[in-house]
Design a protein around this nucleic acid. Structure first.
Lengths: 211, 211
DNA sequence: CTCAGACTAACACACCTGTGTTAGTCTGAT
DNA sequence: ATCAGACTAACACAGGTGTGTTAGTCTGAG
């Protein structure tokens, strides 16, 4: 090895650059040249790390999904320690809530992230190279939702006669709906509405819920 | 007037062409030349009716939204006559259900429509010229949802102590969520799931609902 | 000190884009 | 029959795109 720049760091920097351009102008704005310019590199340099534009885009999408997953995991761990002295039921509920909050646009940073996310997944519907990543992402998410429901049921925060599969689906629908609406109709749905929407849904799972 | 081709028909034909290209390749695939070719016209001809690309795209989006609104209205009218001999409560419920079904991808045709729809609204998030249309569309939809809740409450299909605004929001979230999930994760959400998801939500509004 | 090879920069190619311009063709009211 | 003007077609311009190629620069192991 000679003259070894940290390739992984470079790749991640470029992924980050793609996110910014994508959020502001769609995937088409994240051209090789535009990314290079934004990252203060030459086009040749970018293409040294990603020999193809699709490769760059796929990597950027993968990376974004991974980051989100990491954030969820960390938020749950944090909530775990924060409520380490609480009852398991309360701890579980708060962990789930903390994890799910990471999947919603609730502040400027997460809104920016999910704007990028949305552009990616919607593009993936019609752009083949992105489909595998999109598929991985939603399969993983589905598992996560099922895990959340599991935790809620086992800790008494959700009725035991719940159909876990159905409940996970509904949870996914609510989260995706809140996401899409917050991003496309921001005048009608505030970040507070988003949080309230999720919390409402969760509290309706409580066995003693519903008047 | 001389040599007057039906301009409105031409415009609608071109809008239709845009939908097809958009659904398959995103807004960027609906270039002036591509649209012209697909519609078997020359580029100059297209630009005679739309002097700018944005104008064409905006018109196409407007038209799509209008068509959807028309379908909703007609479905409700149909349901009204179909249940004209029923109790008002039952008629109202079925009208609402029929209208809302028009806002979901439940068969090949509606799936295609909403693929186009989704591409439009997500592009509108970052593409200024489309924003006014998107805004009109979601404001109109919001009113429609509130109207639906109203009907349900007044006909006893929904609890009277419901917060109408909140209920309309939740309805919107469920519908948008089902839409996004069906289109981005078709393996996880079938068209039947979509219908079931909506019906479940509606039946949970019933005053005597919840065990 | 050397030099393989990781990295960068620059150019070329073929193609597509929106838009402006300009000349032509056809039609229906006069 | 004429002719204004709605419509069409074709070209040009300036710029952007992905990608291939090729020559150069820098560095750390030997």
């Amino acid at each position: 090895m000679v003259r070894t720049i940290d390739g992984d760091a470079r790749r991640k920097l470029l992924a980050d650059t793609v996110w910014g351009l994508l959020r502001k102008g769609g995937l088409e704005a994240a051209s090789v040249r535009a990314v290079a310019k934004e990252a203060q590199l030459s086009a040749g340099s970018v293409r040294h790390f990603f020999s193809t534009q699709d490769e760059l885009h796929v990597f950027a999408m993968d990376e974004l999904m991974q980051r989100t997953a990491d954030r969820v995991e960390e938020a749950m761990r944090e909530a775990g320690t924060a409520y380490s002295t609480s009852q398991p039921a309360e701890r579980n509920l708060n962990q789930v809530r903390a994890g799910l909050h990471q999947l919603l646009p609730i502040d400027d940073e997460s809104t920016a992230n999910f704007q990028t996310h949305l552009q990616f997944v919607v593009k993936a519907v019609i752009h083949q190279p992105l489909q595998a990543t999109a598929r991985d992402s939603y399969l993983r998410l589905q598992k996560f939702y099922e895990d959340c429901i599991d935790r809620l049921v086992h800790s008494g925060a959700a009725a035991e006669d719940l159909d876990p599969h159905k409940a996970a689906q509904q949870l996914a629908v609510v989260i995706d709906g809140l996401l899409l609406r917050r991003l496309t109709a921001p005048e009608l749905v505030s970040t507070d509405d988003v949080i309230a929407g999720l919390d409402e849904h969760l509290s309706n799972l409580h066995p003693e819920a519903s008047p």
